[in-house]
Design a protein around this nucleic acid. Structure first.
Length: 474
DNA sequence: TGAAATGTTGGGGCG
DNA sequence: ACGCCCCAACATTTC
């Protein structure tokens, strides 16, 4: 009877978990989660908080099934050796991660384990498609639409069911579950605590609720910021509490059952978003540097020039552009931002403030509970125009027009920028244009209760285009 | 998964 | 009745 350590990271679920499934098929399962070594990489991020909450929830699920999650900290190889000595485990399975650091570490650990006679196996548990997908010329895809078309033709593996688990039967030594909190700096995100319920069950419920209703209108509603049309699944997908392949197949089944054209189109729009996620990993796998460096070389010399003060104003939602500020405050208070606003706020940092996308990406990494290195890198490079299939640099979002288009009544702004809540349309989108009487009636003093725009849109746009000309010449 | 600038057209006001 | 101008409204080009 094989005894397999299943090393969990961003795959905190029982359903459709290839590593867990195979381990269970072969015998006894020894689930392991390893916290980062003390003193190393201990930065407290919202995503780490979320992961720690998700691990705690997963531990409970396992315990209900009579299986103990072993929690260790420190070097992964050393931790595994510890566990193997105590439990006589003779195999280690895990699902692949695709970041450059993770790949390097996984390779190192696999080699070390193999060298001492341990059976090591890894699986794709995170993506819809084969991570090595190539086009007909044998090249990685460089344009999303072709990747998308290919994806729609691919067969996505059917999700695996929840396996029957057999655990060790005797307790093994482990760190207490509450160590997750302290190590992850959980106490630094008290405002997120009441907002998010972690775990596989909640994730599946969330999907069922969304697929029952919102999914069918997703195509037309998803851009309307205050319509509540987001799936809210991204934090669960990021932690691996739900499998994208399960979502895929479930959505496909719903599409097959419905004759309504709009609903079918909506489902396709949603599937397209899932394919964007795979495309992000596709890029990360083929161009691991995209996390740190622009893919288009000329952007290495881009004349970034934003200042610290403006960066803080952006982070705090004090730019004077209501939609941008609403988004940045939503991020601070909830750990997520609506996708449309994400683009507008990111574009504002890069193009209006000329602050480098890496700085923005770092802030998102610190604050997003749905943080995903591949998505984040792709998204920021897309906005900047420095990535594959990115928006051309001269495409500059106008934060006022975006606000008028996608938050036409200003409801989203009123929710997050409460000092503007009494301001009527159209001035809610551009308070500095409101007549004095309107401002007074709404109880607003520009420059004191709410900032004047920190940059003028037209001037900032012009400046950004000039900066673009500079690198284009080179 | 833009926006602004520039070009074109056609209806209507007006001398 | 006619030509001229104005300017929405829409289309195209440019950034």
């Amino acid at each position: 009877m094989q005894r397999t350590i299943v090393w969990f990271r961003n795959d905190l679920r029982l359903h459709d978990n290839p590593a867990l499934w195979e381990a269970a098929r072969n015998g006894i399962v020894i689930p392991l989660f390893i916290l980062p070594e003390e003193g190393i990489d201990m930065r407290s991020t919202a995503a780490r908080w979320w992961q720690s909450r998700s691990v705690a929830s997963f531990e409970k699920e396992l315990r209900k099934r009579g299986v103990q999650l072993i929690i260790k900290s420190g070097d992964a190889f050393d931790a595994m050796i510890d566990v193997m000595e105590e439990t006589d485990a003779n195999a280690v399975y895990f699902n692949e991660q695709y970041g450059p650091d993770e790949l390097k570490m996984d390779k190192r650990i696999a080699e070390q384990l193999t060298a001492i006679g341990i059976d090591v196996q890894n699986f794709n548990g995170n993506l819809l498609f084969d991570p090595g997908l190539k086009n007909k010329q044998g090249e990685p895809y460089k344009v999303f639409t072709s990747f998308w078309k290919r994806g729609m033709q691919e067969t996505v593996p059917s999700p695996l069911p929840v396996p029957q688990l057999e655990g060790l039967g005797v307790p093994a030594s482990t760190l207490p579950v509450d160590r997750l909190d302290t190590l992850a700096g959980r106490l630094r995100f008290p405002e997120l605590e009441p907002l998010w319920q972690p775990g596989e069950r909640t994730a599946i419920e969330q999907w069922e609720q969304f697929s029952d209703d919102g999914l069918l209108y997703y195509g037309t509603e998803r851009n309307l910021i205050s319509s509540g049309s987001s799936s809210l699944l991204s934090p669960y997908i990021a932690a691996g509490s739900i499998s994208v392949r399960s979502i895929w197949h479930s959505a496909k089944r719903i599409a097959e059952r419905t004759a309504d054209i709009t609903a079918r189109q909506s489902i396709n729009v949603f599937l397209r978003q899932l394919i964007w996620r795979d495309f992000a990993y596709h890029q990360l796998i083929h161009y691991p540097n995209i996390i740190r460096l622009p893919l288009r070389k000329q952007f290495l010399d881009f004349p970034w020039q934003g200042n610290e003060e403006q960066l803080s104003e952006w982070k705090e939602g004090q730019t004077g552009y209501p939609l941008v500020d609403a988004g940045m405050r939503e991020l601070l208070h909830t750990g997520v931002i609506h996708n449309r606003v994400r683009m507008v706020a990111a574009s504002f940092l890069v193009k209006h403030l000329l602050i480098s996308w890496q700085v923005g990406a770092e802030w998102f990494k610190e604050r997003l509970i749905d943080f995903d290195a591949a998505n984040n890198a792709m998204g920021w490079q897309w906005v900047t125009g420095s990535g594959i299939d990115a928006a051309p640099y001269f495409r500059i979002f106008n934060p006022i027009l975006q606000s008028e288009k996608f938050d036409s009544e200003g409801d989203y702004i009123r929710k997050w920028v409460s000092e503007l809540s009494n301001l009527p349309v159209p001035y809610i989108h551009k308070p500095w244009q409101a007549p004095a009487s309107v401002l007074e009636k709404a109880g607003i003093q520009l420059g004191s209760t709410y900032p004047m725009p920190i940059v003028d849109h037209a001037a900032a746009r012009k400046r950004a285009l000039q900066a673009f000309q500079e690198i284009k010449r080179q």
